[in-house]
Structure formats: structure tokens, C-alpha cells
Design a protein around this nucleic acid. Structure first.
Lengths: 149, 149
DNA sequence: AGCATAGGCGCATAAGTATGCAACGCCGAA
DNA sequence: TTCGGCGTTGCATACTTATGCGCCTATGCT
């Protein structure tokens, strides 16, 4: 359950204003996650969110995080950047945290998935073009699985 | 005096680890600024510092810059940026003034239209992905209506 | 000078966040 | 099955940060 909750948190944070942990708790409860503030405090720590003027945001690495000396895996990237995966026809759309689209798309390209024809990345959205509906469905499920790991 | 203290705070923060306001207070005192935690709380607010894992840092510009106190409505944005709306299959393409694509796309994302799967913005063009033909048609008409209001 | 107003500050305390501890559930080994 | 370890959570509470209020000083106006 924890991973799903983390995704929900990331989505809520990226989406709008989350002023404090208690507000986050109420919003999560409306989505079916009933946890206490204590748990959210731990979640926020794990997700490395920071609270600035105007609520929580993603700590955009700047606050010298420990350096990875190993290139992050695709799973890690998805875990770190992706927020939501949706499909439309032969296309899959990935919503990411701001600025996360480019690196994640690049990682996808290099992953060599044969059913991906190409990717196109904006700032916080990736468009994945697949050869047909079915393959798009496959890709969607695989991505969702990774997101919910 | 306040300005000098602010500079000292900025230096301490950029320099190293400032774990919390009380530590900051002690370090400032060594430099000749004797103030209470309450004052530092206000200073930090004014300097827009954020506390992340590992102490205070400068507000992470990337994490969506501080909000305008009156976020323009979606109508306003369309009114201000959009030039033309056209549809192709499950996609809607919006032409905007140069540089207008990114902000307008962002506004669309945050509008929470359920039939929009995602948006992808270049400099003066937005690609809106809808779940299917019909919904793309809906979105197209709604956008056109707003554009012609 | 006499008075009004504004900003900075400390104090006390409210508001918000982190954490030690114990309880619970879920494996995997014996 | 029974046991032990591990991970997750809630509870209670410690710790940290924000803020209402009042005092003080500086500044400006009459």
C-alpha cells in the first residue's frame, strides 16, 4: 500500500498546494488512504519533499543530495519522476514532476523496448508513440507496474 | 541591522549545514547577531529559504516559482495566448503566440479536464492528447468556445 | 515639541513536524 | 505449525517553527 500512497502524495504535491501534513492527510483520506500525520511525516522524508513558502515541493536535487555514482535504472527513474501513466489509442502519456520528462524519456529510449516507436518529451509530460493499440496497452501496463512496484 | 543579519544568514546557509533555527541562532550569535528564534523564523520566511533533508537551502527555483497572488483563469490564458484550435483524430493542436505554449499547457493540465490524457508543449504549439476521437471533439469545441468568447 | 504611524523585535504560545516505542501482519526457516 | 525477523503503522510526545500581541524606537507631520 505504501507505494501507492507515495504515488498519490506525489501527484497531490505536483498538482497543487499542499500546505501542511494535516491537509495532505485530509486529501489522501478522500482518495481512500487513511493514515496519520506521523506516517506522512515519514513518507515526506522518504520522498524527499521540502516545505517552502507555499507548501511542499519536490526537492529538485539542488540541495546537494548524495551523489549516485551508478546510473539510475529505468525503475529508479520512473520511481523518481513519473506521476501518472495513461493511454489513448496507440499513445501512452506519462506525467512527470516538473523537469522530469526529458531525462525519463531518454531513459525510455535507451531501454530499447521494441514496442515503442518513439518518445517526445516536454517539461512534465512524455508522449510515447507505440505501433498500435495493443502494444500501447502492453507498454502502459508495464509502466504502471513499475510505478506501483 | 536587519539587512546585515540577512546577509549573514545567507552566508551561513550557503556555507554549510544549518539544521534548524536554533542552530542558526547560535551561529549568528557568535558573529555578533543576538536575536531570538522568532526573528529567525521571520527572516527565513523573508529570504524564502526552505528546509529540506539536510538543513536549510535556498528556495529551489525549479520547484514551481512562487505563485502569482492571482493565478489567471484558464479563460484568461486562452484569451491571451491561444490563436487557433484544430483537431486530428484523438489529438487537438493549439497554436499559441510565441512562448505561450508552455504556460497555457500547464494551465490546461491543472484545469483537470478528465478527457485530456496529457498535453505536450513546444514553444508556440500545444499537442493535447485525448482518450478518443469523440472526446477530442468535445475538447476542441470547448476550447473554441473559450477562444471566441 | 507633541503626536501619529510604521517597522522590528521578544515573549508566550499555537501550529506543525519528527520520532521512540509498541503492536500488528507478513513471510521464511525450522 | 511455531517462531523470529522485518517492515509498516499509530500513539504519545518531544522537537521545531510560526504568529498574535505588546513594547520600543525611528520617522514624519503639524
Amino acid at each position: 500500500m505504501k507505494t501507492l500512497r507515495h504515488n498519490a502524495i506525489r501527484e497531490l504535491v505536483s498538482l497543487g498546494q499542499v500546505a501542511n501534513q494535516d491537509e495532505l492527510r485530509r486529501k489522501l483520506r478522500r482518495r481512500g488512504f487513511a493514515v496519520t500525520q506521523a506516517t506522512l511525516s515519514r513518507d515526506i522524508h522518504e520522498l524527499r519533499l521540502v516545505k517552502g513558502p507555499g507548501g511542499y515541493t519536490f526537492s529538485n536535487g539542488a540541495g546537494q543530495a548524495v551523489e549516485d555514482n551508478s546510473p539510475p535504472s529505468l525503475d529508479d527513474m520512473i520511481e523518481g519522476f513519473a506521476l501518472r501513466v495513461r493511454r489513448a489509442m496507440n499513445q501512452v502519456v506519462i506525467a512527470t514532476v516538473a523537469g522530469g520528462a526529458q531525462p525519463l524519456a531518454s531513459a525510455l529510449d535507451h531501454a530499447g523496448w521494441s514496442d515503442i516507436v518513439g518518445t517526445l518529451a516536454g517539461d512534465d509530460t512524455i508522449l510515447v508513440i507505440c505501433s498500435d493499440h495493443r502494444r500501447a496497452g502492453d507498454v502502459e501496463s508495464r509502466l504502471k507496474a513499475m510505478l506501483e512496484s
